[in-house]
Design a protein around this nucleic acid. Structure first.
Length: 871
RNA sequence: AGGCUCGUAGCUCAGUGGGAGAGCGCCUCUCUGACGCAGAGGAGGUCGGCGGUUCGAAACCGCCCGAGCCUACCA
């Protein structure tokens, strides 16, 4: 692509630039990685967004951070791979298609399983790629040739392989267990899929024969098979082991009293009714005491035949009826209002019903131990560290993972049942006839939890179970970038599966980023209507500004409150860069890189090169530590407040004066090289504008064709120039002093001031040389004179050992100058008092490090000198 | 109940042991030949409170107050 030669507009227009470059990068294959490359690998797998998803702020932040890392590493010479893909998202996707069917007046049962699944696939092919296009809009430099989907043939094979091996090792099993059942979604939910919600309820105290107990679920009374008390509870010790005849809503029932640690004697009356069929705790108590399970609520949320005259009633309706009936029978002692957390389905918020049913489980305990150890031993680093505690806490208390789901969309469980001999066969290949008796087999109708396939993502996407070159090169991946909300769902399980099946951790670093909230700190949600749409922001301010905002706000361990004016601020930053480049490009006539490199460098040149080297070092150091916000602000600060505010202003002096062609040439050279380097430094954060401007700058013949594949800047020690930084500090201080006088005396910017500088110490040569710079930047005529005396009507400023007099006669009256000097004197006096007091304390001089004491002594001396001059 | 995070300028937030910072907003000035999406200058803070450690604390420790999040089987 040739550099556009059209005149450059004075405002940066992101739209056209972004539309031009992304397809071009993709076309040239810059995103692709080669497993045979000799370069050091650096790999990231994307947290796969749901196929049904549309880009939200969480995605935007997550993928921007990954793109910053991958672009930086790619430029830095690594064999960088970013694997993209999407997740089939079981329930979420199935719901989308069910809604479509509902609109046609059909249910999934009407069309049948096969046709339904086919329809989901069709939908996926047609409209499942929205989020992928949106990621491209964000500039994500993923290797799209490696795009994966969790239900791809390859990944499905990996899922089966893992399932079968875990089965063979006895870690996958079926069990009758109490599960979280959503009566609306008609499926089991894992513990992680159950959310807690505070709800108001009634705490009903019911008489159970001679005992009384409180419950919030009177309807489960019909499923009671025992009463329980704490083993140490003296009040009830006599009853333990006895059988009680308890009058109830349907005659008298007989209940045993058991003693169990799970009962809290302090709560309620200290007596619990035990309903193993409808409560997880009761289920455990039941197992310990061999109590029968009685199921009185069905999968549809209605009372079963076992509920007798209540059969067919909705569970909540039944609750009301039972309370009525109990009251009529005089069995209710009292009712108290009670607020407590109930479990609800994470998708539809229906109250979850604990039910006993046969489900598939993974015994994750043996997998959790190595995964826990990997973090403890530092083979996986979690950043920020504070999350390791949470990780371990969960791992240490991990419970069996229920992996079967009663859905149609997902990886079907590879288990077959023979009705004739009652056997279960788990197999890598589809089975049709029983290997033993030759009878017909039917496959389990359930599918696997979506997170089962996600857990394999880091190696399944690279070709496992085959031993591929990709796996060899890119596993373990370098870093995983994700939000804390899926630390357990996903990160922990990947750690377990990776260690189990690859024998190594799936990633070396886990960077956990914050949640993006609105400006008020509220979680963004559709129902609250406070959602900021990333696509709208990108349209309005440009992708680069949007990305930079996210990065600049991404401080570790803290949620991001996103306010739109912040994005606007970085839009202005993009425009600033654009215009800085325009200035440079407009002044390159006669530029000859080779000749320019030989011209002697002036102070501003040495200074800005030194500052750039320092900035480069900072950005690299911050990125290495995942301090994204610090890295961003380092470039921002340099580019705007050092390069634009100071260097460009100084460059104009050399650029616009015809009397020193060598200086002009040299300045052109510094402008070009510093800007070019800074663009490379900034590219991972703002990929589009940097490419566009970089293409317009003059480059050598051997330069790469794109900034994307140019080298990431390195800080060289040779470029650091302490003398230049120190000298420039003096010049800047003089300029600032004159400007401050102008501002505080309210002298119009257009007035040229007359100033005299009496240099002290070693300032004379420096200031004599820098006088033209000062004159230009501070709009004054400057006389540097070692024997200069302060004119009668003048403002005084002290710069280190030097004195500065700005003549005010005829410009302004001197009243204000007195005030200004008084203020300055007062500040100096306070400073001296502070330092004197500090240095007078023997404990300080004796115990503080010598360097600190010396520094304070120097400060004091400097302040005293300043005071003497001012006085 | 346990765990975690946060409380710094009007707002959003940096700042993990040596005299309080940035961006936005606010005030004054500027139609200076890159940029008004700009430039120059300025006002504004007992760093939530109380103790402690230290020569020295916004930072480290304890308690309290306030905000939020995560985990959890008090029915």
């Amino acid at each position: 692509m040739t550099a556009p030669s059209a005149p450059i507009p004075d405002r940066y227009d992101p739209g056209t630039v972004e539309a031009r470059w992304y397809p071009e990068w993709e076309r040239r294959g810059y995103f692709g990685a080669d497993p045979r490359s000799p370069r050091k690998p650096f790999s990231i797998v994307i947290p796969p967004p749901n196929v049904t998803g549309s880009l939200h702020m969480g995605h935007a932040l997550n993928n921007t951070l990954q793109d910053v890392l991958i672009r930086m590493k790619r430029m830095d010479g690594f064999n960088a791979l970013w694997v993209p893909g999407t997740d089939h998202a079981g329930i979420a996707t199935q719901v989308v298609i069910e809604r479509q069917l509902a609109a046609e007046g059909k249910t999934k049962e009407d069309v049948g399983r096969e046709a339904f699944v086919e329809r989901v696939w069709r939908w996926k092919e047609e409209s499942g790629g929205i989020i992928i296009r949106q990621l491209k809009r964000l500039g994500a430099s993923c290797d799209w040739s490696r795009e994966r989907f969790t239900m791809d043939a390859g990944l499905s094979r990996a899922v089966r392989e893992v399932f079968v091996r875990l089965w063979e090792d006895g870690l996958v099993y079926r069990d009758d267990y109490i599960v979280n059942w959503c009566p609306r979604c008609q499926t089991v939910l894992s513990d992680l899929e159950v959310e807690r919600e505070e709800r108001d309820a009634e705490f009903v105290y019911i008489k159970y024969g001679p005992l009384t107990l409180g419950t919030v679920r009177p309807e489960t009374k019909l499923g009671d098979t025992a009463l329980a008390v704490h083993p140490g509870d003296r009040r009830y010790a006599a009853w333990v082991g006895q059988e009680l005849d308890v009058p109830s809503v349907e005659g008298t029932i007989r209940l045993r009293v058991v003693a169990d640690e799970a009962v809290d004697p302090e709560f309620g009356t200290g007596v619990v009714k035990v309903t193993p069929g409808h409560d997880p705790v009761d289920f455990e108590i039941g197992r310990r005491h061999h109590l029968p399970v009685r199921t009185v609520i069905g999968f549809d949320g209605r009372m079963t035949a076992a509920a007798g005259k209540y059969a067919g009633l909705d569970r909540f309706e039944c609750r009301r009826r039972i309370v009525e009936d109990l009251r009529r029978l005089g069995l209710i002692e009292r009712i108290e209002p009670y607020r407590h957390a109930v479990g609800v389905c994470y998708r539809c918020k229906t109250v979850v019903e604990p039910l006993v049913s046969k489900q598939w489980y993974v015994n994750v305990k043996p997998l959790a131990e190595p995964a826990s150890a990997a973090v403890r031993q530092g083979r996986i680093r979690i950043i920020p560290r504070s999350w390791t505690r949470t990780y371990h806490h969960w791992m240490d208390n991990i419970r069996p993972w229920c992996i079967s789901r009663q859905l149609w969309w997902g990886h079907r469980i590879p288990a077959w049942y023979c009705d004739r001999d009652g056997e279960v066969y788990v197999s890598r290949d589809d089975l049709t006839t029983c290997p033993k008796c030759g009878g017909a087999l039917r496959q389990d109708t359930d599918v696997l939890d979506t997170w089962f396939s996600s857990a394999l993502w880091p190696f399944s996407t690279l070709g496992w179970p085959d031993r591929t070159a990709d796996l060899e090169t890119f596993y373990p991946t370098s870093v995983l970038v994700t939000g804390f909300d899926i630390l357990f769902f996903w990160v922990a399980r990947m750690a377990m599966m990776g260690l189990r099946f690859m024998g190594d951790v799936p990633f070396r670093d886990v960077y956990i980023h914050a949640l993006v909230r609105d400006a008020e700190g509220q979680k963004m949600s559709k129902s609250k209507g406070n959602v900021i749409d990333p696509l709208v922001m990108m349209d309005r301010y440009g992708t680069d500004a949007f990305r930079f905002t996210l990065v600049a706000l991404a401080a570790q361990g803290r949620d991001i409150r996103l306010a739109e004016d912040r994005i606007e601020g970085y839009r202005n930053f993009a425009n600033k860069i654009w215009n800085a480049a325009r200035l440079v490009l407009a002044n390159l006539d006669g530029y000859d890189a080779r000749a320019a490199a030989r011209a002697p460098r002036g102070l501003p040149d040495r200074w800005i090169v030194s500052r750039l080297a320092a900035t480069t070092g900072l950005v690299r150091a911050h990125l290495r530590r995942y301090r994204f916000n610090d890295a961003a602000s380092a470039v921002y600060q340099f580019l705007w407040h050092e390069f634009c505010d100071w260097y460009l202003e100084m460059a104009k002096v050399a650029l616009y004066r015809a009397d020193d062609p060598a200086a002009r040439l040299r300045t052109q050279h510094t402008l070009v090289t510093v800007l070019e380097t800074t663009l490379r430094l900034l590219h991972p954060f703002m990929p589009f504008i940097t490419e566009e401007l970089w293409q317009r700058l003059p480059r050598g013949d051997r330069a790469p064709a794109s900034i994307m594949i140019a080298a990431y800047p390195r800080a060289s020690r040779r470029q650091q120039d302490r003398d230049a930084e120190r000298d420039m500090a003096v010049v800047m201080e003089v300029v600032t002093a004159i400007r401050a006088i102008r501002g505080e005396m309210r002298i119009a910017p257009g007035v040229t001031l007359a100033a005299t500088l009496r240099p002290g110490g070693d300032h004379q040569a420096l200031l004599a040389r820098a006088a033209p710079l000062v004159e230009a930047l501070a709009r004054c005529r400057l006389t540097v004179d070692p024997r200069g005396i302060r004119p009668p009507a003048s403002a005084l400023a002290v710069v280190g050992p030097s004195e500065l007099y700005v003549e005010l006669a005829g410009v302004v009256d001197l009243e204000a100058e007195r005030g200004r000097l008084d203020k300055e004197l007062q500040r100096v006096a306070e400073s001296i008092a502070f330092l004197e007091a500090k240095l007078a304390r023997p404990d300080f001089t004796a115990r503080a490090p010598a360097a600190v004491v010396d520094r304070e002594r120097e400060r004091l001396a400097a302040e005293r000198a300043r005071r003497d001059k001012l006085a």
